[in-house]
């Protein structure tokens, strides 16, 4: 057995499987079983991962910026979100529906899924880890104002906070308030103000002074 390689020492960059969490190992085992039994092809799994990763919050930002500049589009978006985002070329995944809720000077919506991590992935990409955390899911419904303060948003008492618990196959996207001082900005510049977190509702959209576009004065 003189040619018996010690794999771990010869390939230090390769992590042994024991580094994977139990859940990760279970997911791999399930995927391998589904492929072995012919339920899905390995290529289908790869393609789906690629599709999922290709979705980013930039899609949602584009939807919001359009709503800010086009009142008719905004009205359609609030009335029938699926049809409105389709106008911009976005289709929703699975059979989940989409609703858009508008934040104003008086009303602030913030979204949580207390049961799991329901989220409009078609427009925002995969949800951030904090959105899936037990801490956020517990606290967002009990003390939303404290949670938002930790994200840097301190809402006055004159603003009503409306927490939406997305407990079903209906995904919610927040249409943030258009920031003060954004008059005259192009749709593309406005989209740069719309962060993922502002479309979940834990923050506001960025002020023009907070982006590089405005700082450099490019129009």
């Amino acid at each position: 057995m003189t040619d018996n390689h010690d794999h771990e020492s010869e390939h230090p960059g390769v992590q042994p499987d024991s580094e994977l969490s139990r859940r990760a190992r279970r997911a791999i085992a399930m995927r391998e079983l589904l492929v072995q039994k012919g339920v899905v092809a390995a290529e289908e799994v790869r393609e789906q991962i690629e599709r999922t990763r290709a979705r980013t919050p930039a899609h949602g930002s584009r939807v919001v910026a359009r709503a800010w500049v086009d009142p008719d589009f905004k009205a359609r978006l609030l009335a029938d979100a699926r049809a409105a985002v389709y106008e911009l070329g976005y289709t929703l995944t699975h059979d989940a529906e989409l609703a858009v809720v508008e934040n104003t000077d008086e009303v602030h919506h913030v979204i949580v899924c207390t049961l799991c991590s329901c989220y409009p992935t078609s427009l925002l990409g995969p949800p951030p880890d904090w959105y899936k955390s037990f801490a956020y899911r517990k606290r967002a419904v009990v003390e939303p104002r404290a949670v938002m303060r930790e994200f840097g948003l301190d809402l006055g008492d004159h603003v009503q906070v409306r927490v939406i618990d997305s407990a079903a196959d209906l995904r919610y996207l927040v249409l943030p308030r258009r920031p003060v001082g954004s008059d005259g900005m192009s749709e593309g510049e406005l989209a740069a103000l719309v962060t993922r977190d502002s479309m979940i509702g834990v923050t506001s959209a960025l002020e023009p002074s907070q982006t590089r576009v405005a700082a450099s004065g490019t129009r």
């Binding site: 419904v141 003390e143 939303p144 104002r145 404290a146 008492d157 009503q160 906070v161 409306r162 927490v163 939406i164 618990d165 997305s166 407990a167 079903a168 209906l170």
Partner: peptide
């Protein structure tokens, strides 16, 4: 936190 705040749940 605020008496005017509400919770909206899909049921």
């Amino acid at each position: 936190e605020n008496r005017a705040d509400v919770l909206l749940v899909d049921v």
